[in-house]
Every structure is written in C-alpha cells, then in structure tokens.
Design a binder for these strands. Structure first.
Lengths: 351, 351
DNA sequence: GTGAAAGCGCTAACAG
DNA sequence: CTGTTAGCGCTTTCAC
C-alpha cells in the first residue's frame, strides 16, 4: 500500500518564480544556490519573490540532476546498546558539517536487511553506507563498492576492497587483563557473548596473552559464554559461589555485565573490589554511576566516527581503501582498586 | 564541502536496457514494476537482460516523477533513553510494510534542528514527519501541515491542525499514586524533571488527585525536581535520610530513578519495599532485572507507534486531524509489595 | 551577468 | 499488450 499525497496541491516551482520576477530559471537557480555573478539588484528582486511566495526548491529534482542525495546510511544492529547511539550521534554531527544527513538503518543482525541497505546505494537513494555491524558475507558488500562509498567500522573483517576502522580488540583484552593482574588478582575469569565474532576472538586472544605473560595457565571453567547484560553478571556471581576453584576477578567485556556482578555481589555480601575485581568495557555512563564505580576498557567512539568519515571521503575521491586500527585504554575506578595490603600475588594452582 | 562521486562511472539506465532488449522504455518500466499485461516471453527477455547487466533503477528519478520519496522522518530528542529506540523500532517495522523507510532525526531538544527537519518536508525530501518530541512552537509546525503528513506523538500540545497521539499522563500519575496508597504507603513523594513539560504537569495533577481522594494533603518538601536518572534516585534516598518528616514511598516517573533508589537503599540498609515503596515508569527491561524488581507504570509503545501511523495515513487522505489518548496501566512487582502484616494506613500528620 | 536549451532517469497517459 | 510522448523540477553548459 502507498499513501497518496492529498489533493495534489500545485507546488510552486523555480519556473513560477522566474516568471514572476521576469528572469530566467537559471537566474533563480543562481540566487538559490548563492552563486556569485548575479547583479545584486536582480538578486534582491528574485529573493523578495522567493520569500513572498514562500518558495522552497524541491530536493529530489536537484538530487536527480546531480545523481546524488547527500544521504549516508549508518547500519547498526539496534539501538539498545548505548554504543551505537553515541556512534551515530558523532557521525551525524561530523557529516552535518559536510551537508550530509544520516539515515539510521537497523539490521537486527539480519543479512536480508543488510542486503536491502546495500540495494539503497545501488539505486542511489543513499550516497554511501557505514556498517557498524555486519552479518552479511563480505563478498556481498564488496560488489557494491563501485556504486557508492562504503566503510565498515567496529566490525572485524578481511577485505581488500572496503575501508575499515576498528578498535584494537586484542590489545583491549590484553590491557584489561593485565590491569587486573597488576592489581593483584590472579584468578582471572573471562566472558563473552559468542566467539563467532572476530572481535571477541581477538579480545580473548589478548586475555590469554596477558595470562601467559604472567605465567598463568588458562582455566576453561573460568571462561563464560553467552553473556550480554546485567542478568548474566548476576548469574555468574551466583555460579561462582558454588565453584570450588573460583576466580577472584573477571574481564567482562561489558559495563552492564560488570554492573550486574556488582549488584548481585552486594546482595550476597561479597565485597568488590576486595573479594572480587571486575573490569567493564566501553566506559558507559553506568560505569561511573555504580558504587563501586567500574574500572573499564575505554574506546574512543568519537575517533571511530571521525576516521570512518575520513575514509568515506577518501574513497569518494578514489584514494583507495585503507584500514585503521584505533587504540584503547583502561580507566581505573573503584571496582579493581583493591586495598594495598591485600595484594597477594601467587601462581595459580590448577585443581 | 561535498564529496564527489568517483570518476563518474556511467550507470546503466532504463534506456540502455530497452535498446538491448529491443523494446521501449515503457516496457522495461513495466517489467521492473511488475506491471501485469506484459507478454511473458517479453518479460523474460527483458528480465534476463536486467539480470545480466545487473541493472537497478535509479530511485531519485522515480521519486522526482512521483514527487514522493517514501521516506518518513521520526524526530526524537536523542537515543539515550530506550523509550525512543523502541518507538522507532515499532514505527519502522510498521512503515516497512507500507514500503516506507524511516529517517531518524535527533533534535537534542534544539528548535533550530527541528526547523531543519520541517524544511525537509517542505523540500519534499521527506514525505512526512512524526514528532516524538517538540521544542518548537506548535505554530511553526502547523504551517507545514499542507506540504506533508505530520503527526505529533508522546508530546502534549494543543492544536487543531495536527494530529496527535499521547499517553494519558494524568491517569498515569493517578494510578501509580493510587497503587502506592493501596499498598499501604501513606507518605508519597513525587519527582519530575521539569514542569515545563505538559506531560509532567498532567502526571503531577494525577498524583495530586489520588492524594486528594485519600484525604491526604500535599507536602511540598516531598516534591523533587530535576530528576532524570540513576544518580538522582540515589541522591533522593540520601536526602530523605536527613528529613525529619520523610516520605515512605515515591512515584518516580522513571525506571532508572527507581533503580537508583533501590541500589542506594540497599547500600544504606533500607529495605525496599518494607521500609520504602517505589514505583517506576515505562516498564523497561531494567525494571525486571533489579532485585527487588520494580513496580512500574506501563505504556504501550507499540500502540503509540500503530496509532501514529494510522493518523499519518488518514491525514494523507485528507481525512482531517484527530487526537488519540492511549491508556496506561500499573504492573505490580516487588518494589511495592509490602508484606501484608505491615499495612498501616493512617492519615498524614502535617509537621 | 543573463538566458536558452538540453537533459538527469523514470513513469504514466494515450494511442494503437 | 506495447510504444510514443510528454514531462517531474532543477542545474549547467554554452552562447550572447
């Protein structure tokens, strides 16, 4: 079904204005677009009529003429996680400077949705696309690389044809884990949602690397999967109660999970950070609002936005693809600030 | 600055296909649009060429021809609050059925941004607009009501020219407060962000009505303002500690605030719901994840989305404006489930 | 400086 | 069933 516009109100066109002003369409066009070389007397006369008639140019006509819509799509899985909201915010702000508007496209991780989005650039409804999530195979994305600007950010994929911007997830895993170790925790657990994601795998690799550097061996029972939010944090704290060989800290990969752990620990009388250390991810507002506040791995969303757009831009000028890896850092807060006296560093005894 | 598309790759047009297939543009157009009355032999031949050449029609050309973009803008203040994310989700899903796409427009409560959005419908870049927030004066919105479909939802405004959908906020305030009273709390506090919002004023009115019905007088010191999130909830619990005449329950108007109160109460050894009752708003995920889980005033976002679109639709057919008020309900959970024995109903003694 | 004219790619009457 | 034709409203050479 399609909605029809009501009673086809005759809109006023550039030609109407031209006639009223006694000039050509070209002149009116020049006035609209602030083109120089229009006698100021004429300019004023035309402008007066435009104002009087409340005329505004029809955007699609211009778009067709230029085969360009000044619209960039940003593909996100959904808007539940604040990360995507912030990223969109940053991207929108920068793009607005360049006279572009952004169209937010929610995929819900559905490849067929993403295929539709790609179709929009093929039909030139969108000038370009920034993927912040990707469920589609990279090949399907690559084949539209000629009909519009495309950048993949946040998602880790291998490609020679598309520019990418990503966080250094391995280093994130490494630094986060190392922070915990340096704070005196020695029995470090790790959790993730799914290892299907390459980013998660890299993070996991960093975790293992830090462990290795400290001569600690990996405990499979300390690796938790399918962890997304608050309730998973709570669940894990509970599970740990019944473990004979329980960890004393966790790299969570999410501030929500860390918050869940803190809330449940509090209820159960477990003291964070004394009895258990926890580090989050993303430096969300939540991480400073909890008490104890959450030590977290911080990524720069602004910088991801900025670089994505730089790459979009370069691509549109045929400057070829490029891959950028963004640094991350650890922000120390209370959830890992174990009292000095309590530091007990000893190698792990495998049970 | 504007990005230029790279090296102007010659795109294939409907005319190219027509020539290759040895038919007219009209026939190709019919094939593309699944128009009946095309001999199937022809249809197949044309389709084969389309597939072979990987041809896709340019959307803007069609848009210009029809003076319609099949794009609806949805104006939200930001994406921080899950309410807007969900509303957008619902709206998008319904609109997709109607072959419309939604463009999310973030205003950050800035009237000038909203003015730009309105301009998009004047320039016909957007076929319509759904405001879920409104900082602009209603007059400025009214004057574009002829150049596109416009609906205002969630925001409470007086207008004869624009269709509106809103929740029954007064009833929300009333039912929420009444629930608390029926659970045996008698010293009910209230908080809001700002009374500049008409919705908030209505909610406040409902609160007062419930109090009045129970012959309780309003205590000014129990009315808290500038409350938005977790930290405000915490702050209020702390403040109440030092009040000589402290309330025993609160209508918060937000699940986050309620969550903040619960978290802080737990830290301070105050038992919710025994010592203090709290009711949230919006029925967010958060409200079931907290312990105690949060009793909340629930609105139907899906129904708001549905009605907004129905009204958009009606408007496009010139069926005139309409105003819809959506019902709300209270979902009882643990945060107000005071033990039966504890019910002590007594009129308030004004200090 | 200004105007005339040629499209941008597609759709939709209207003939045939 | 299929083709012809006339635009949708705007920009942009190219003359003058």
């Amino acid at each position: 079904m399609r909605y029809r516009s009501r009673g086809r109100v005759k809109i006023s066109t550039i030609e109407d204005i031209a006639k009223l002003a006694g000039v050509s369409k070209a002149t009116v066009s020049r006035v609209i677009n602030h083109h120089p070389y229009v006698r100021s007397e004429l300019r004023e006369r035309v402008q007066a009529i435009i104002d009087e008639k409340n005329y505004v140019p029809v955007a699609v006509a211009k778009d067709l003429r230029r085969l360009q819509t000044n619209l960039i799509g940003v593909v996100v899985p959904n808007l539940h996680h604040p990360f995507f909201g912030k990223l969109i915010q940053e991207i929108s702000n920068i793009l607005k400077e360049d006279c572009y508007d952004v169209v937010i496209l929610q995929s819900n991780y559905a490849p067929e949705r993403e295929r539709e989005f790609i179709h929009y650039v093929r039909t030139k409804k969108l000038d370009g696309l920034i993927f912040t999530t990707l469920s589609l195979s990279i090949e399907e994305v690559e084949c539209v690389s000629t009909s519009g600007m495309i950048v993949i950010c946040n998602e880790h994929v291998e490609t020679e044809l598309i520019s990418t911007v990503q966080f250094d997830e391995e280093r994130a895993g490494y630094l986060g884990t190392k922070h915990l170790l340096e704070k005196g925790y020695t029995r470090i657990a790790f959790c993730y949602d799914t290892l299907k994601s390459k980013a998660q795998r890299k993070r996991y690799k960093g975790y293992k690397k830090a462990l290795c550097e400290h001569h600690l061996s990996l405990q499979q029972e300390w690796i938790f999967r399918n962890c997304y939010g608050l309730k998973d944090g709570k669940r894990m704290i509970q599970m740990m109660q019944s473990m004979k060989n329980a960890p004393d800290a966790m790299f969570t990969g999410s501030d929500e999970i860390a918050a869940g752990m803190i809330m449940e620990a509090q209820r159960m009388g477990i003291c964070i950070p004394k009895d258990f250390g926890v580090i989050g991810f993303d430096n969300q507002e939540l991480s400073v609002m909890m008490s104890p506040s959450i030590t977290t791995v911080s990524t720069s969303i602004a910088s991801m936005a900025k670089h994505s757009i730089i790459l979009l831009h370069k691509q549109s000028q045929g400057e070829g693809v490029q891959r950028i890896q963004l640094p991350i850092s650890v922000i120390e807060r209370e959830s890992t600030r174990r009292e000095e006296g309590h530091v007990s560093y000893r190698p792990l005894t495998v049970s």
